[in-house]
Design a protein around this nucleic acid. Structure first.
Length: 659
RNA sequence: GGGCCCGUCGCCUAGCCAGGAUAGGGCGCCGGCCUUCUAAGCCGGUGGUCCGGGGUUCAAAUCCCCGCGGGCCCGCCA
């Protein structure tokens, strides 16, 4: 049984080229040949073509002679109708009936058509989202989460054994700030009427801002005094103005938070303004005690972290994203694995004391071109040393991440670990890889894949969770839901309320998922509300609509008579194109997994839907009188429905029988 | 100052890694199509110096160099 019709055809051409190459004394690399096989710009030129300039040149023969030999070999294949040499290409035309039979057989015999498992499955970890447990998920996390989830789905579909993990960074400074604010507030239970992560996000931002405000006021006072007594210099005045401006910004942010929740604001600001201790000292104490695992700190920090996680988990559940494992960073620290790493680092030739702190000279290792190449690091400039531990003895996130990487490889016996991570972390992630290599974890360093995505930014808004300038995923989802609901209500007055609600929910989820996961992750994503909420464009609702349309046709017939298909009628151009695309689907799904490129699949699904919708306007399906043709048309419709459904599910999108 | 990423019709985007045939979609705008399988659809029209300049090549949106523009990073933050 052919699992991947397109690959089957490509392989036929590739082996013909390789064989002719041999006749000319060339040892052609099979994969290189496959890369040069493309679809001609128009189906009139052929179904598949291969550029042979390169090979002819290598063989020092006329491209036409080389091409002619390839073409004549291909003409002997039973499914090939003809092969032509045109402008440096060998173009192949397949017999439409053979093509149709090949594709439809593959489709109907495979309930999971579109999954082409690899020969040697790998054990792969996809770590994604991993948001700090201090605030709700925002649209930046959304890109991370949907990329990660889709990648995991794609890899599983390719037959790999995949585990998804969420890394809970509970040992850092941010969590300590939140914990301190929460403590000053008197450690209250979260109120009922607000999502717990939302509530904590406000506490976190308020604590930050109030601390900053207090600090800046002290600085202003000092300068004022100086100005009064000595008159001050031009620089002092300049500094004074800068601080005033910053103070204004903080006040504006505080004002916003005040209007969100006056009661919380008043309580917390009173506590912080009256607090006479040293914030920095207190934060250090929390971090230190937590890392040491002292009971009071464990109780306090775990409590806030778990409140935040409760909210984050609700959001993720609403989006049908689940994780196989949740890893607390603190567990890692307490387990002494981090300590062990530092021990190993001390024995490494790259160990240095940098600015008085224990560090690894990752920059020195990066000078080794071979290592850089092997680790896939692109940074050519100076890479600064990686500090492993603060002077007070607490560890840094990168140090813990080294330990976590090793832990992931061990715990799952993983062949590869993929980290979905924002572009701003490129440098530290490169340092983590170098550090792993430096302390002897070469296999781990080489098989750690840093999957970078660019920022999501909102025009005219600087996102900052420290200042509570964020667009939460919850908000966006509910906004999308409202828009979808309005649309569904006006279009489907015939459906019961629950149906309309379910459809609206699925449409809104799908829209945001598809938008985030189907464009090149390296393109900075300028987030526009209009666009994200429009439900139009190259969007998931369009694909879901197309699915429902195909399903609607199929729901009106009893069954497809697979043995009564008139394959000779597959010559019709639109039908042939559709069959072709259905046949190409497994290849695309495999490639999207192998290249870690979900966007490939997104574009393909849109293309298939475009052709189906065009055809739908062109020809009647169930009204077709001729049984052979009718069954052919139904088989195509079945294929379109299957492929769109299968493909959307890889994006984590649930298809609906009707919308 | 150094480094990384991105730059394709008015706007968004595919193609770039692995150079090859007419740069493919969408939004917008203009004009058509619901007594026929879901009009979230279809058909026609509009719109492109592939950021600029060099170079490599038989061939460059794609590779290399120099610029320009935007974003990000260069912390005992994450």
């Amino acid at each position: 049984m052919v699992l991947n019709p397109y690959r089957y055809l490509v392989q036929g051409i590739a082996s013909a080229v390789v064989n002719i190459g041999k006749e000319y004394g060339l040892e052609l690399n099979y994969k290189d040949v496959v890369r040069l096989i493309t679809e001609p710009p128009s189906m009139n030129l052929g179904d598949l073509g291969v550029s042979i300039h390169r090979f002819a040149k290598q063989a020092r023969v006329n491209p036409i002679d080389f091409g002619e030999k390839v073409a004549s070999t291909l003409r002997n294949n039973s499914e090939v109708s003809t092969a032509k040499v045109v402008g440096g290409y060998v173009n192949v035309f397949y017999k439409p009936d053979h093509l149709g039979r090949l594709i439809i057989n593959s489709l109907k015999e495979n309930p999971n058509y579109g999954s082409e498992p690899v020969d040697k499955p790998l054990r792969i970890i996809v770590e994604h989202t991993s948001a700090n447990p201090i605030h709700p998920l925002h649209i930046g996390h959304a890109r991370n989460a949907f990329l990660g989830d889709t990648l995991a789905n794609l890899l599983r579909n390719r037959g790999h054994v995949v585990q998804t993990r969420f890394y809970i960074d509970d040992t850092g400074r941010q969590v300590a700030i939140l914990a301190l604010g929460y403590k000053l507030l008197g450690e209250p239970e979260p109120p009922e009427n607000i999502k717990p992560d939302e509530w904590l996000g406000r506490i976190y931002a308020l604590t930050n801002l109030l601390m900053e405000l207090k600090d800046i006021r002290n600085k202003l006072k000092a300068i004022e005094l100086k100005l009064k007594t000595t008159g001050g210099s031009e620089e002092d005045l300049e500094e004074y103005r800068r601080f005033v401006k910053k103070q204004d910004e903080i006040v504006a942010d505080l004002d916003r938070l005040w209007s969100l929740d006056k009661e919380l604001f008043d309580k917390l600001s009173k506590a912080i303004m009256e607090y006479d201790g040293d914030f920095e000292k207190e934060l250090g104490k929390i971090m230190m005690s937590y890392e040491k695992g002292e009971e009071w700190a464990k109780k306090l920090v775990r409590k806030v972290v778990d409140i935040a996680l409760e909210g984050i988990k609700i959001t993720l559940k609403n989006l049908d994203i689940d994780f196989n494992k949740w890893d607390y960073e603190s567990d890692l620290v307490w387990s002494s694995l981090v300590e062990k790493i530092i021990g190993k680092a001390k024995n490494s030739p790259y160990f240095i004391i940098y600015k008085g702190a224990e560090a690894l000279d990752t920059g020195k290792l990066a000078k080794n071109k071979e290592v850089i190449e092997k680790l896939g690091i692109r940074i050519r400039g100076e890479i600064p040393p990686l500090i492993l531990r603060r002077s007070d003895g607490t560890t840094l996130y990168t140090t813990r991440d080294i330990a976590y990487t090793i832990y992931k490889f061990r715990d799952f016996n993983a062949d590869k670990v993929i980290n979905i991570i924002g572009a701003e972390q490129r440098l530290p992630q490169a340092q983590v890889k170098l550090a792993l290599y430096a302390i002897g974890y070469r296999r781990e360093a080489e098989n750690l894949i840093t999957y970078i995505y660019e920022m999501v930014h909102i025009p005219g808004m600087k996102m900052s969770s420290r200042r509570y300038r964020i667009v939460t995923l919850d908000w966006m989802l509910s906004e999308l839901y409202d828009r979808a609901k309005k649309e569904v209500d006006s279009r489907r007055k015939d459906l019961p309320k629950e149906d309309r609600e379910r459809i609206s929910r699925e449409l809104s989820k799908a829209a945001v998922k598809f938008q985030m996961a189907s464009i090149d992750p390296l393109k900075p994503l300028s987030f526009s509300f209009e666009k994200a909420l429009s439900l139009k464009e190259n969007s998931a609702p369009y694909l879901m609509y197309t699915y429902a349309r195909a399903n609607s046709v199929l729901s009106k017939i009893n069954s497809i008579e697979w043995d009564n298909i008139d394959y000779s009628e597959a010559e019709h151009p639109t039908r042939k194109k559709l069959l072709w695309l259905i046949g190409k689907y497994p290849w695309v799904a495999s490639k999207a997994a192998d290249d870690l490129s979900p966007e490939l699949l997104g574009g393909f699904l849109i293309e298939l839907a475009d052709h189906f919708n065009r055809w739908y306007g062109e020809e009647r399906i169930i009204d077709e009188k001729d049984p052979g043709i009718r069954n052919l048309k139904l088989a195509i419709t079945y294929g379109v429905r299957h492929v769109i459904g299968h493909g959307l599910r890889l994006f984590g999108i649930n298809v609906l029988p009707y919308i």
